[in-house]
C-alpha cells in the first residue's frame, strides 16, 4: 500500500488525526507522518529529496498524455490512484516507474523466484482480437526508443538511458511522433 498523501513511498504508519471533532484516518509513509505531526525534517534530509521531486514533476508534465496501449491508463491516473492498470503499464511508464521503484525497494532488479515452467499452454493460447492487434501493431520510432529506454533503465544502464532520453526529447521538439 502506498502512502495516502504522496503516493510515492509505502505507507508504514497508521495515522489518526482529530480535526473539528472528526477523526481523519490515513495510511502515511514515515515522511508524510512526520510532516503531519509538525516535525521538522533536517535540512540535509530535505535537499536529498529535492532532485527526485523535481525529476518526477518533470516526467509527469512531459508524459501527461501518454496512455497504456493495453488498458489506457495514463500516468496521471496512476499518480491519483497509486494503482497501475495492467502489466503492460510497467513498460509504458518504465521511465516514470523506475525512480519510484527504486525509492520503494532501493533497487530495480528482481532476485527472487522465476516462473519455472516453459509453458506449452502459453504458445497455444489464442490471443483475443485486441491482443492480436497489439502484437502486430508496429512500433513507431519513438515507441521503439521508449522501449529501449525502459530496458536500459531496468538494467540500470543509466548513461545509455540518458542518451536515448535525449533522442526522444529531440524527436518531441521536432514535433514528430
Amino acid at each position: 500500500m502506498l502512502c495516502d498523501k504522496c503516493k510515492e513511498r509505502p505507507a508504514t504508519v497508521y495515522f489518526v488525526q482529530t480535526i473539528n471533532n472528526k477523526s481523519v484516518k490515513q495510511h502515511l509513509c514515515q515522511e508524510c507522518a512526520n510532516k503531519a505531526m509538525g516535525l521538522q525534517l533536517g535540512l540535509g534530509n530535505f535537499s536529498d529529496w529535492l532532485p527526485l521531486f523535481a525529476s518526477s514533476q518533470e516526467s509527469v508534465s512531459l508524459q501527461e498524455e501518454k496512455s497504456c496501449p493495453l488498458c489506457h491508463t495514463t500516468y496521471a491516473d496512476f499518480a491519483k490512484s497509486g494503482k497501475l492498470g495492467c502489466s503492460q503499464c510497467y513498460t509504458t511508464f518504465a521511465k516514470e516507474l523506475s525512480p519510484l521503484l527504486y525509492r520503494l525497494h532501493a533497487t530495480t532488479e528482481h532476485r527472487g523466484k522465476k516462473p519455472n515452467v516453459v509453458q506449452t499452454a502459453k504458445t497455444l493460447q489464442v490471443p483475443s482480437q485486441n491482443e492480436a492487434q497489439l502484437q502486430t501493431k508496429k512500433l513507431s520510432p519513438k515507441e521503439k526508443l521508449q522501449k529501449d529506454l525502459a530496458e536500459m533503465v531496468a538494467q540500470e544502464r543509466y548513461e545509455e538511458a540518458a542518451i536515448i532520453r535525449d533522442k526522444i526529447k529531440e524527436m518531441e521538439k521536432a514535433g514528430g511522433e
Binding site: G82, Y90, L101, H105, T108
Partner: peptide, 25 residues
C-alpha cells in the same frame, strides 16, 4: 497455478503487480 496460468513476469522487475509496493516477489 503456473502450470495452467500465464503470470505477468518481467525479466528484471519480477512479478508485476497493480501496486508498485508489491512488485518483484
Amino acid at each position: 497455478l503456473a502450470e495452467k496460468l500465464n503470470f505477468a513476469y518481467h525479466e528484471h522487475l519480477g512479478y508485476l503487480t497493480a501496486c508498485p509496493t508489491n512488485t518483484g516477489t
